[in-house]
Simulated scan of single mutants.
Amino acid sequence: MLRIVLMQLVAMVVVACTAGLLGGVSALWSALLGGLCCVVPNTLFALRLYISARKPEGANPMTFLFGEFIKIASTLALMGAVVWLYRGVNWLAFVLSFIVVLKSYLILLFRHRP
């Protein structure tokens, strides 16, 4: 799980730097904030699952379901907060960064290990 979160952080930085070079400071901040809207809830979810799996009785499906619900709710809350607090959102950078970070785990999924 840690590798996925690290991959998402790397993807967020790459997309933010690219957006900054192509669209300026507003695009850079929008891409960073869009990526953080995905990375922060995923990190909290991964920590919750890790802690739950370390218990003697192990992880339970309700922990996963509840954690997923909290992850989605916190993602939407963070996105709403960004839109409400940062008036100069570059929508293209914000949405593309969110999508790239959200789907960056595919890189790890298809990575071949000998």
Rank of each mutant, 00 (worst) to 15 (best):
M1V: 07
L2Q: 15
L2I: 01
R3L: 04
I4A: 00
L6K: 13
M7K: 10
Q8S: 09
Q8F: 05
L9K: 05
L9S: 00
A11F: 05
M12V: 04
V13R: 08
V13M: 11
V14Q: 01
V14N: 04
V15T: 09
A16G: 09
A16K: 11
A16W: 06
T18K: 14
A19G: 02
G20Q: 10
G20A: 00
L21R: 15
L21A: 12
L22W: 11
G23K: 06
G23R: 01
G23N: 01
G24L: 01
V25E: 07
S26Y: 09
L28N: 00
L28D: 04
W29C: 01
S30V: 00
A31F: 04
L32D: 01
L32P: 04
G34N: 05
G35P: 06
G35N: 09
G35Q: 09
C37P: 04
C38V: 09
C38D: 07
C38L: 10
V40P: 06
P41E: 13
N42V: 00
T43D: 07
L44T: 06
F45I: 02
F45D: 07
A46G: 07
A46W: 05
A46F: 01
L47C: 06
R48P: 05
L49C: 07
L49S: 15
Y50W: 11
Y50I: 04
I51L: 09
A53E: 13
A53C: 08
R54G: 08
K55C: 08
K55F: 07
P56L: 12
P56I: 11
E57G: 09
A59F: 08
P61S: 14
M62H: 15
T63S: 14
T63Y: 10
T63V: 06
T63W: 05
F64Y: 14
F64A: 14
L65F: 02
L65N: 14
G67M: 02
G67T: 09
E68F: 05
F69H: 14
I70V: 07
K71S: 03
I72M: 14
A73I: 06
A73Y: 08
T75N: 08
A77W: 10
A77S: 06
G80A: 11
G80H: 15
V82W: 06
V82D: 01
V82K: 11
V83C: 13
V83Y: 15
V83F: 13
W84S: 12
L85Y: 12
L85S: 12
Y86E: 10
Y86N: 08
R87H: 13
R87S: 13
G88W: 03
V89Y: 03
V89C: 00
N90Y: 02
W91F: 12
W91G: 10
L92E: 15
F94T: 04
F94L: 03
S97M: 05
S97C: 05
I99L: 13
I99H: 06
I99D: 01
I99C: 12
V101R: 02
L102P: 01
L102N: 02
K103P: 12
S104T: 01
S104Q: 10
S104N: 08
Y105T: 05
L106A: 08
L109E: 14
F110K: 14
F110D: 11
F110A: 11
R113P: 08
R113C: 08
